[in-house]
Each structure stands twice: as structure tokens, then as C-alpha cells.
Amino acid sequence: MQINEVPYSDNSPSLSKQIASVARHLILIGVTLLFLLPFYWMIISALKPNEMVFSDPVQWFPNPIRWENFAEAFNYPGFPFLRFLWNSTFYSTLVTVGTVISCAAVGYGFASLRFPGRNFLFTLTVANLMIPGVVTFIPIFLLFKSLGMLGSYTPLILPSFFGNAFFIFMMRQFFLTMPSELADAARVDGANEFVIFWRVMLPLVQPALIVMAVFTFLWTWHDFFGPLVYLNDQSSYPLSLGLFAFRNRRTTEWGLLMAGATLTTLPLMVLFFFAQRYFIEGIKVTGLKV
């Protein structure tokens, strides 16, 4: 292979470099705007009077701004937003608590403790990742039915306290990277495994716990199929299902509907704002997907 001499300048930015930089930003801005457009459209449509949602010519700014859409969505009897908000918060929080506790414990068990059958069980866990949920949902539904738990949040929350394959896998990988010296030292001091886990190891993996919590919360908030299958009474719906029911009832009220969609998204935006670092890092570190 012939070696070419590449002109190489490391000094102050040349004109061509500046142009390249501007071009990069133009590309980035263009693509970003395209991505944010549906977002923007959701929010401005939520502020439009109904007849302006599909106006011709296209109306890029709501005029007049109609805040009442939100007030109406809040107060509309068929769409008790505050109730749904509470349901979603309650549901997502409990699932998050359950997942974090169980997956941290199980992940630790797989990573740091030796016991017969460990590898076999861990292989099963990884295999579990590949099993589509569809093959288990009917018997689980029937199981909860026979327990008389349909129409409640129990079937939606309870399983999270028994862990899920994805986060167990993730936590195990995390615990494996932790130095074992601390745990060994505690062991020598006579601490039992639970104390070691709780006092020594858990604080070390705090970032992973937050990542897990943030994503569990997000996914549970998004969940539609589970509530659709298990809940029967509208007043117990979480936001995603409530919004769906609202759409089914009020097809012509687009402004209100968009307000509902915005309100359903808003709490996640707030969460994202505070936990941004963990979202982005979480995805990068663990290969998480939404």
C-alpha cells in the first residue's frame, strides 16, 4: 500500500474549517427540527381552538392561544386527568421500587455469590430476554383471574417485585465490575451477605440503580398493553390508557386531545429534565432501548 502524505494542520481554524463547522451545525439543526416537529405540533395544537387544528393555510402559531383546552382536559368528566395522573404515578412508582429492589438483589446474587446451578440459572435468565411476552401473557392473565385480581393493579405491579431478566442482567454486569476487596474485607469482619449487599455494595452501584429506576419508570408510564388487559374501570386507568379512551370518545375534539397527549407526556419531560444524565448515560452504558 502506498503511503500518501496528508497535509496536516493543527493550528488556528482555517476558513474551510469554519465553513465545515457551520455546515455541521446546519445539518444538525435541520435534522433536529425535523425530529422536534411532531413534538412542537402536539404542543401548539393543544393550544389551538378545535377548528384551527386542521386549518388551511397551516397555522404555525396558535392565534388566539387557547389555554382552556388544558383546563377542559383537566375538568372533563370522561377524562379525569388528575385521577389518571395519580394512577400512573402510583403504578410507575411501585413497579420501579419493585424492580430496583428485586433486580439489584438478584443481580448481586448472580454476580458475587457462588452457588451450585448459578451458571445454568443465569443462562436461563439471558434466554428469558429473547422470549416474546406474547407467549406468556394469556396464562398470566388467567392466573391473576383465578386469584380474583383482575380489574386491579396487583397483576401489573406484583411481578415487578420478582425481577426482570433485562435489569438482572444489567445489574450483574455492574456488580461484576465492582472491586471485591471491600466486600471481602467486610466478610472478614464477620458481616453477613445481606449487610454486605445493603451497606457496602448497593451504595457503590447507585448510578446503575438510578438508571434502572428511571427507565423502569419511563417504560411503565408508557405501558399500554398491560393496563388494557387488566383494568376494566375507567377511573382506575393510567394516563396512556385514559388518553386512548378519551380519543375513542371525543374524536372531533382535536385541540383537547392534543392537550391530553401533552399532559400525558409532560411528567416524563419533567423527569427527563432532572434525570437527563442518567437517561443518556444509561443508554450508552447499558445499551438500553426504549
Partner: peptide, 27 residues
């Protein structure tokens, strides 16, 4: 240590049986 290990993974063991193995067979 092994006993502790089983205790730690116990929830998941139950989950594997109740929410994976049993449902697959039942389906």
C-alpha cells in the same frame, strides 16, 4: 455463601417458575 446466593435470587427463581415456565407450558 451458597445459601445466601439462593436467598438473593429467590424472587427471580419464583418469577422464572411462575411468570415464565408455567405460562409457556400453559400456553
Amino acid at each position: 455463601e451458597a445459601v445466601a446466593g439462593y436467598v438473593f435470587i429467590l424472587p427471580w427463581l419464583i418469577s422464572l417458575l411462575v411468570f415464565t415456565l408455567y405460562p409457556i407450558i400453559t400456553t
